[in-house]
């Protein structure tokens, strides 16, 4: 588990609108990479193109390539469904399935794909995933209750448990803490630090401190003006980005002198 990602000359379109242009980025296995940048610069768009979630939007398409340990995810004959099984995703707003219990939510990946599992194996997987998401102690007595009955922070950790239950190689997170209070945020940051042992993690965040706290590498995206495509300005070790970036725009942004 934990694979490398390499984006090569990646252009991402919504219909005829070029949203992100010319991204070249190497993401090392078992590291946390933070993506930062002003609103609308294409962080979510780029993140969603990594697990081929971008193309579920009508008219959306991608040019260039993204390689996962050397295989092109956009190559001919690659099934996007298979890609998404290897690259899990956690969304900005927690989105547990409202018709399912907490238990079923965790193993939704298996249940929805009709994967047959023995009862004790499922129980085990549920416990492991919930422990992995730091949620087990809070919900172990009400696993059969609906997932939508949890608090926002708990729901988000449930979504993380659901994502890691399918045992992906990579975990993408799009502002996973933006709807959460500081305590839940800390819980999720701790979790990211633990998950890094097994997974390659890419996280979009607007919170500089968070990027500095959790990530090993940071990529800064920027946009020149409305209607222009977003670009990857600079990517480096997080320490370096926050202390001595090579680009002026990066320095302005991380020091809060932006716009």
């Amino acid at each position: 588990m934990g694979k490398a990602i390499e984006a090569i000359d990646l252009d991402i379109y919504y219909g005829s609108f070029l949203a992100v242009q010319g991204v070249n980025m190497t993401i090392r296995p078992k590291t946390v990479t933070a993506l930062i940048g002003p609103s609308g610069c294409g962080k979510s768009t780029y993140l969603r193109s990594i697990n081929r979630m971008h193309e579920v939007i009508p008219g959306a398409r991608v040019e260039g390539s993204i390689e996962l340990d050397g295989t092109d995810l956009y190559g001919a004959g690659v099934d996007p469904v298979g890609v998404r099984r290897q690259i899990g995703m956690v969304f900005q707003r927690p989105n547990p399935f409202p018709t399912m219990s907490i238990y079923d939510n965790v193993i939704a990946g298996q249940r929805l794909n009709n994967k047959r599992m023995r009862k004790d194996a499922t129980d085990d997987l549920v416990e492991r995933s919930l422990r992995g998401a730091n949620l087990w102690n809070e919900v172990k007595d009400r696993l059969e209750k609906p997932g939508s009955g949890l608090s926002g922070g708990q729901q988000q950790r449930l979504c993380i448990a659901r994502a890691i239950a399918v045992q992906p190689d990579v975990l993408l997170m799009d502002e996973p803490c933006s709807a959460l209070d500081p305590i839940s945020t800390l819980a999720i940051e701790d979790l990211i630090n633990e998950l890094k042992m097994d997974y390659t993690i890419v996280i979009v965040t607007h919170n500089m401190q968070q990027a500095a706290r959790v990530s090993d590498y940071t990529g800064f995206f920027n946009i020149e003006g409305t209607g222009k495509p977003g670009k990857l300005v600079e990517m480096d070790e997080t320490k370096k980005i926050f202390s001595q970036p090579t680009q002026k725009a990066t320095e302005d942004y991380v020091s809060g002198r932006f716009g």
């Binding site: 579920v56 099984r85 969304f91 989105n95 018709t99 939704a108 249940r111 929805l112 794909n113 009709n114």
Partner: peptide, 23 residues
């Protein structure tokens, strides 16, 4: 039905027809 639920299922590697049928 919120689009987020469809996306949640897609992101778990569930094919579209199963997402429709089961979510």
């Amino acid at each position: 039905v919120p689009n987020e639920l469809r996306e949640a299922a897609f992101a778990l590697g569930v094919p579209k027809w199963r997402t429709i049928l089961k979510v």
